[in-house]
Computed example of a mutant assay.
Amino acid sequence: MNQPLVLVTGATGFVGEAVVFKLLLDKTFTPLAAVRSQSRISGLCKTVYWDMNSPDIGFTLDGIHAIVHCAARVHVMDETAPDAMDEFRKINVYSTLNLARNAAKSGVKRFIYISSIKVNGESTPPGQPFTSVLSSLPQDPYGLSKFEAEEGLREISSETGMELVVIRPPLVYGPGVKANFLNMMTWLDRGVPLPLGAINNQRSLVFIDNLVDLIATCISHPSAEGRVFMVSDGADISTSQLLGLMAKALGKKSRLIPVPVGLLKLAGFLAGRSGMTQRLCSSLQVDMSETCRLLGWSPPITRDLAFRRSALHFQDSQKK
């Protein structure tokens, strides 16, 4: 019996590739990977080339049961585009909605959109985690483009009957992670003293395996239709705790200097890094109780195991 076909966009990215591997292992669905270039998944499943900048999809969507849309122009720390909002809209809004319209015409049953917690905002007050109900608006072009895509997808779903599922993950980490989380592990591994020992905020994170497990659940779960899901590891953590626990997972001694948060923010302002300092010091929590209740789901990987797996992969990569 043929397994239902699931198109995974952004299949060479951190999340998209993990979704493909999850589907290959579970063997409930057959993944079709939409890629921009060849990668290690090319010999593991069928792939199609997709240029998100082109109005022509370039391949048929006929026979596809569901789409997991991971492809996106991601958050850029040092933006160089003259009109950042326009660049984000081209990929995250226009290309996404073009794919969805073509999917609906081809009879795709469900469209799973991997959005971002930045749709809700950049920080949360103590004890007031973000929920699927928006209480504020996005504060940067990336978050705004994700918000606009969500709104456009809801219109398409309403007009065509194609089922929509939205997932808004916070920071995603795990083996092979790049950017700031990789930098953090590098600093800890080298024993670099960090002035971050007095930050008592609360941050929600999600391990890559926990995220893709939720995504796989949403492909066919009847209660997922029309919903927005928040996701995390279910164990929020402060920046200082994060650094300490990751150092332990790496087998290193954390060298955290307890610099007052006020001084950190002042230093960040003087250095032109207020945004980075804000992210390090502020809280950002999500409430995923509705996700767990509606889907009967919980994160399969504990935070301690997630940190150990991330640390082991990092250490193995340093030996190559």
Rank of each mutant, 00 (worst) to 15 (best):
residue 1 M to I: 08
residue 8 V to S: 03
residue 9 T to M: 01
residue 11 A to S: 13
residue 19 V to D: 08
residue 19 V to R: 03
residue 20 V to S: 09
residue 22 K to E: 11
residue 25 L to F: 11
residue 34 A to P: 06
residue 34 A to V: 15
residue 35 V to I: 15
residue 38 Q to H: 11
residue 39 S to G: 15
residue 42 S to P: 08
residue 44 L to D: 09
residue 53 N to D: 15
residue 57 I to M: 10
residue 62 D to W: 03
residue 63 G to K: 02
residue 63 G to R: 02
residue 65 H to I: 00
residue 67 I to T: 05
residue 67 I to M: 06
residue 71 A to Q: 00
residue 75 H to E: 12
residue 78 D to C: 08
residue 80 T to A: 09
residue 84 A to E: 00
residue 97 L to M: 13
residue 100 A to Q: 12
residue 102 N to A: 15
residue 104 A to G: 14
residue 105 K to I: 08
residue 106 S to M: 14
residue 109 K to D: 14
residue 111 F to A: 09
residue 113 Y to Q: 13
residue 114 I to G: 09
residue 125 P to M: 10
residue 139 Q to G: 01
residue 144 L to T: 01
residue 145 S to L: 00
residue 147 F to G: 00
residue 148 E to V: 01
residue 149 A to Q: 03
residue 160 T to Q: 02
residue 160 T to M: 06
residue 166 V to N: 05
residue 166 V to S: 04
residue 169 P to Q: 05
residue 175 P to Y: 02
residue 179 A to N: 03
residue 184 M to T: 04
residue 188 L to I: 00
residue 190 R to V: 01
residue 193 P to T: 03
residue 194 L to K: 02
residue 197 G to W: 01
residue 197 G to C: 03
residue 198 A to F: 09
residue 198 A to S: 15
residue 204 S to P: 10
residue 206 V to F: 11
residue 207 F to V: 12
residue 208 I to M: 12
residue 211 L to E: 13
residue 211 L to T: 12
residue 218 C to T: 14
residue 218 C to H: 07
residue 225 E to M: 10
residue 231 V to D: 08
residue 238 S to Y: 10
residue 239 T to R: 11
residue 243 L to D: 13
residue 248 K to N: 12
residue 249 A to Q: 11
residue 251 G to D: 08
residue 252 K to I: 04
residue 265 K to Y: 08
residue 271 A to V: 01
residue 271 A to T: 02
residue 271 A to M: 11
residue 272 G to K: 09
residue 274 S to R: 07
residue 276 M to P: 02
residue 277 T to P: 00
residue 278 Q to L: 06
residue 282 S to P: 01
residue 282 S to F: 08
residue 283 S to T: 03
residue 285 Q to K: 09
residue 285 Q to A: 08
residue 286 V to F: 03
residue 288 M to Q: 14
residue 290 E to P: 03
residue 296 G to S: 04
residue 303 R to T: 12
residue 306 A to G: 08
residue 308 R to L: 08
residue 309 R to V: 04
residue 314 F to K: 06
residue 315 Q to N: 06
residue 320 K to D: 08
